[in-house]
Lab assay of single mutants.
Amino acid sequence: TTYKLILNGKTLKGETTTEAVDAETAERVFKEYAKKNGVDGEWTYDDATKTFTVTE
């Protein structure tokens, strides 16, 4: 399944996708990605669109 991440950081904005077996796995991948890019904020997930959003 393809999951999407929307980054709404103070200095970094953008989108990325990952293939994962479930939302929990995708969330771990995306949180590591955000951490590596210095983005830390509020996380939300929309199951209907398989989209995570992190907003600083």
Rank of each mutant, 00 (worst) to 15 (best):
T49Y: 05
L12N: 08
K35A: 15
Y33M: 04
V39C: 05
T55D: 07
G14W: 15
A34M: 05
V39D: 02
T11M: 15
V54R: 00
T11H: 14
D47F: 10
K4L: 09
E15C: 08
I6P: 00
L12C: 10
F30A: 01
T44R: 10
G38E: 06
V21T: 13
G41S: 02
T55I: 09
A23T: 12
D22G: 04
T44M: 10
D40M: 13
G41Y: 03
V29Y: 15
E42M: 13
W43T: 01
E32N: 08
K10P: 08
A23V: 14
K10V: 13
K31G: 04
A34N: 03
I6L: 08
A34K: 01
R28T: 09
V54E: 00
V39T: 04
L12S: 09
K35D: 09
G14E: 14
L5G: 01
E42N: 10
V39Q: 04
V39I: 12
T11D: 14
K50L: 09
D46E: 09
T53I: 09
K36F: 11
A20C: 06
T53E: 05
G9Y: 06
T51G: 02
W43L: 03
E32K: 07
A20W: 02
A23Y: 15
T51P: 00
T55R: 06
E19R: 07
G41N: 01
V29W: 11
T25S: 13
D22K: 04
G38Y: 04
N8P: 03
L5I: 03
D40H: 14
E19A: 08
G41P: 01
L5A: 03
E42S: 13
E24M: 14
W43Y: 03
L12W: 13
T55L: 06
T18G: 03
T2M: 13
K10W: 07
E15F: 13
V39G: 02
T53K: 06
K4E: 03
V29T: 11
D47C: 05
D40R: 11
E19V: 14
N8S: 09
I6S: 04
A26Y: 00
K50A: 06
D40G: 10
A20L: 03
K50Q: 09
F30G: 00
E42G: 06
E56P: 05
K50G: 04
L12R: 13
D47E: 15
L7Q: 02
D47W: 08
K13R: 13
K13T: 12
R28C: 06
Y45G: 00
A20R: 03
E32R: 06
V21D: 14
N37I: 15
D46L: 04
V21P: 15
D22M: 04
T49E: 06
G14D: 09
K10D: 07
T16I: 15
T16R: 12
F52P: 00
D40E: 15
T17V: 12
K4W: 11
F52A: 01
K13W: 12
A26C: 02
K36S: 13
G38F: 07
K13F: 10
